[in-house]
Design a protein around this nucleic acid. Structure first.
Lengths: 314, 314
DNA sequence: GCGGCGAATAAGCAATCGCTTAGATCCTCG
DNA sequence: CGAGGATCTAAGCGATTGCTTATTCGCCGC
């Protein structure tokens, strides 16, 4: 029984799929499957089995889940505690939805790290809205920036940080033939995350999959839109730069603008690391607000490493 | 960072010596030393260092100790929880001081197991008085039978179970030459445990080490005493059989009889496994009392496996 | 019945774990 | 200063872990 096996089990149970757990852990799917099977044979219990959409836990599995979660969390805590005691910079792991990560996460994290004066070392990863609560409750991430995750029984605390509008943009010369229903939609990875504002927008407009093109990041999608390839959803203030320069123009649709909010989610104060509390507080300062409002000064998208998920055990 | 390494660290920190931890774990001393050094280099912290009698923890070490203890305890709990959920018999690990283990532990455990009707599978090991609190608080044992271990800050609960007298015996034909000070004392392993009634007796009589012969178990010591090799300490009712048959006779000394008590020690009710509570309760029943009083009907000492300590991870 | 997707299994491989024995080191106490 | 006890290091070993790619299994929708 190793900690690796336990965290694989926890993630599978919480995410409801071996594949999803493998993605989060950044390993191949058989690796997770094997860890699970090792645990199964060691404990002599099936622990969990597929059933339609998700997984169902055996009695033993559900008993184990609570205990294993604690062990995984304590493992992360143990490493952090020793490192801090040595005066080493505290590690702070933040996850954000892809759009946020692309534009504002890095400047926010960098500025926060600078403010902390070397006492904190922050890193940032990408996660879907579904992954976030799992990552935070199991201490695989300290703070999530994205949708509202407040969930009483999971013990998470979300706080609204920022308010913005989701609109649609296209090349100024772009002309729809046959109305909005026929347009090609150019989206980033967040559209594959059900529950994200982007995917809500597409659902509300009834856009079929065949008319959606997914790009690795938002900037690439906008570049394609500027080339006249179609319509792209965009957070208004993030795309303001391109609109002002005339590369893109706002397109009216039946569903836009959509008002959305970004939330910062952490464990409740008594169970979260102090650095997570500091970052949370920093996010509500006018300075952070300014960074989120004016990302044109942020880092170029090339510096953004897309699927660098959180690594749990260094 | 593995659970093996963490439990090695916890045991070393709590017992104050690498060697003691190795003994408890039933492995060689370099094995523990190496586990510790692996943990040290992984975390980049010395964690603990020798200082005279015991060990002193670094700041990081003391942080880690609490967290690691929990993890080790949860590891044991996880295995138990899954096994129980499967309907497998609950494991119950008892430790006792050598004398108790030799005579009464096995019949007690066997009877208790029988009463439970297959729902509990109990095993028994030997531990010194110093090891007991460590083993119980870290859930490496569920119940300890021996001296009073009540320790508020460690969160242990001891309850008196039985009262007995420690006396001295020798061959009926044995005659002291030069008084008690010159006698050879024939003792079992418990005499090497400071704090045990036997060692208290020897200290009180001022017996020098040179006049002490240690036997692997109490029965062997008594056999030697019956052969006239010297004087042996004995729990009165345990040796009654041999006295009645004339093999041994009670010897008067300045310190005997010593009144002693056996205690059952567990975690407090809210943190201990149910089976430990049941055993604790069983130990206070008249039936258990009877077994402790009349061990002549117990198992022969050959069935007693001396240094089978608790194995933590099967 | 059949393709497709998720999961499990197989095979292979490097790294690590966990243990041993043997020897070096270090500290204390006489 | 030397003896002895405790600890650490070294070397070696077998088993396990943890990961990969490739293949097979089981199930669902058509």
């Amino acid at each position: 029984m190793t900690l690796t096996q336990l965290s694989a089990f926890v993630l599978v149970a919480r995410l409801g799929s071996v594949k999803a757990a493998a993605t989060v852990l950044g390993v191949s799917e058989p690796a997770v499957s094997q860890a699970l099977s090792a645990l199964r044979s060691h404990l002599g219990d099936q622990l969990l089995s597929r059933s339609g959409p998700g997984m169902t836990l055996t009695t033993g599995g559900s008993r184990l889940l609570g205990i294993a979660s604690q062990m995984v969390a304590l493992g992360a805590e143990a490493e952090a505690a020793v490192r801090v005691a040595q005066g080493a910079p505290e590690q702070l792991r933040m996850v954000a939805t892809s759009t946020i990560a692309e534009f504002v996460a890095t400047p926010l994290v960098d500025t926060f790290t600078g403010r902390a004066g070397g006492a904190v070392e922050a890193s940032c990863g990408v996660a879907s809205g579904a992954e976030m609560p799992v990552l935070v409750t199991n201490r695989m991430a300290d703070l999530a920036l994205g949708p509202n995750l407040t969930d009483a029984n999971a013990g998470l605390v979300s706080e609204p940080i920022f308010r913005c509008k989701l609109i649609a943009v296209a090349s100024a010369r772009f002309r729809l033939r046959g109305g909005m229903g026929k347009a090609t939609w150019l989206v980033d990875a967040s559209a594959t995350d059900p529950g994200s504002p982007t995917s809500r927008l597409l659902v509300r407009l009834g856009v079929p999959e065949s008319r959606i093109r997914v790009f690795p990041n938002q900037t690439a999608a906008w570049a394609a839109a500027a080339d006249g390839a179609g319509v792209a959803p965009a957070v208004a203030h993030l795309v303001a730069h391109q609109v002002r320069r005339g590369e893109l123009a706002v397109v009216e649709t039946a569903a836009t603008p959509i008002e959305t909010r970004w939330y910062a989610t952490t464990l409740p104060p008594d169970r979260r690391p102090v650095a997570a509390g500091s970052l949370r507080h920093f996010l509500s300062t006018p300075e952070a607000m300014q960074l989120m409002k004016a990302p044109g000064t942020g880092v170029p998208p090339s510096r953004f490493r897309p699927p660098v998920y959180v690594t749990i055990w260094s």
